[in-house]
Each structure stands twice: as C-alpha cells, then as structure tokens.
C-alpha cells in the first residue's frame, strides 16, 4: 500500500493523543505534523501537502472551517468535533467523514476505511459545497486572506471597499490593500447588505466609509471615501445608495 501522509489539527494535547494512538494500527500512515492552532495548521498544510487531515472545529484564532477556506491544497478530511449540531447536519448532507468525541475504535476504523478508499481512488471530494452550506449563519464578521504562509484576519468593520480584479478581489482596509482569490459577487453575498453596497459592476463600498458623493458629469457620480479615494458609482448603484444615506 502507498504511504499516506496525515496532519492532526486539534488544540487539545489529549485529543491529538487519541488519534495518534488509533493511527498506530495503520503502519502505512505517516503523521507529518501536529498542529494546535489554525495559523500553524494553514502553514503546515501548505508545507506538507498531506493526503489526510484530522480537523477539529473549535480552535483558537481560526476554526476548522476557516482553515478550509484558506487552503488551496485538496485533501481528504475527517472532521473531529465534540458537539456541533449545525455542522453535523451539513456533514450528513454532504457525506463528509466525521468523528464525534469521544469515539470508538470501530467508528474510527469506519471513517478511515472510507477516507482511505477515496484517497486511493485519487479523487478527493470537493469540500466547496460543504463550505457554502456552513456559511448560512449570518453575515461575515471577518475576512481571511492568506499571503504565502501568512494569514491576515480583517474585521469587516475595517474594510472600506472591495474592487474586482480579474479572478481576484482587491480589499482595502485601514490604508492597506489585500488580494484574495474570490469572485466579487460571492463576497458580496457574504457581506452584510445593509452596510456593504455594490455601487458599481466591479466595486463594493462600506457605506460607513463614504465621506460624500460628488457629481462629476451628467448622470455619473463619484463616492469620496474618508481616506480620500474616489470610486465611480453607476446609476443603479446610486439608486441603491440613495436609500441608505
């Protein structure tokens, strides 16, 4: 059997220990890293590109789902959680492997059998659908951006505008710019529509950051932000803004 690389992500030492013990029965699985927080997990996954992840959901800094959002590497995931009714529903719908703490050897072996079958077939299932269904609880409160190994956590309050740049969005926050691979319409659907207005085909503005609106030609206007930047507003964008300001 081919060697399978795995990373265990859990903030509790004892919880990692249990998984390690169970994995001792699988000699062809090599544990390449253990992580006790989300930042480290994102870094180690990028570095080792493992085949298999044991991912705890409740963790400091970044939770399990936020880690998923930040990794580009495709791998098989077994979620491990003590209790999370909301996530469990999503797991069942999307046939994701999960373990409920504490778990039996039998349950562990079942999850492993399923995960290993997928790994050997060479097509890890996409977690994008799962990711989307987990997002349904209220507007985004922070935006996560990974630049190389570094993870930036931007509170949405600090974001003044978002502009579409090909496949990326350029996020302006506290005088800095961040690029994130995401479609503008997708990000728009995640932000609070009361505060973040799509004022133009390629621009979303935080209405709290608008200083004033200038008319610069017939039917075309500019939003002047508190930091001095000027952004174009389309006619429909202006209609949306009028109702809010």
């Amino acid at each position: 059997m081919n060697e399978v690389s795995a990373i265990i992500i859990d903030d509790e030492d004892l919880a990692r220990m249990v998984i390690r013990e169970h994995l001792a029965a699988y000699p062809h699985i090599r544990i390449v890293a253990e992580c006790c927080n989300g930042f480290d997990a994102v870094k180690q996954i990028a570095k080792h590109e493992p085949d298999l992840l044991f991912l705890d959901i409740q963790m400091p800094k970044l939770n399990g789902f936020e880690i998923l959002e930040l990794i580009t590497h495709r791998c098989e995931i077994i979620f491990v959680t003590a209790y999370d009714q909301f996530a469990l529903k999503a797991f069942d719908v999307h046939a994701v492997d999960y373990l409920l703490k504490p778990f039996s050897k039998k349950r562990f072996d079942e999850a492993m059998a399923h995960a290993l079958a997928i790994i050997s077939s060479g097509k890890p299932e996409s977690v994008e659908k799962l990711r989307e269904s987990l997002r349904n609880d209220g507007p985004l409160t922070r935006i996560l951006i990974r630049v190389g190994e570094k993870v930036h956590v931007l509170p949405v309050d600090s974001v003044s505008s978002v502009e579409a740049q090909d496949d990326y969005v350029e996020i302006h926050a506290e005088g800095k710019k961040y690029l994130k691979q995401q479609r503008l319409s997708e990000l728009e659907s995640l932000l609070d529509p009361q505060r973040f207005i799509r004022v133009h085909r390629s621009i979303i503005v935080n209405i709290d950051c608008i200083a004033r609106i200038e008319l610069y030609a017939k039917d075309s206007r500019l939003a002047v932000l508190r930091d001095g930047r000027k952004l174009p507003i389309s006619r429909t964008g202006y209609e949306k803004l009028k109702g809010r300001l």
Binding site: E12, L14, A15, V18, A82, K101, P102
Partner: peptide, 11 residues
C-alpha cells in the same frame, strides 16, 4: 461534557 469525556478516553 463531550470534550471532558474525550480527555478521559485519551488518558
């Protein structure tokens, strides 16, 4: 409760 039980199972 479940996290505690998991710790017991680990120990």
């Amino acid at each position: 409760l479940f996290n505690s039980l998991n710790s017991i199972s680990a120990l």
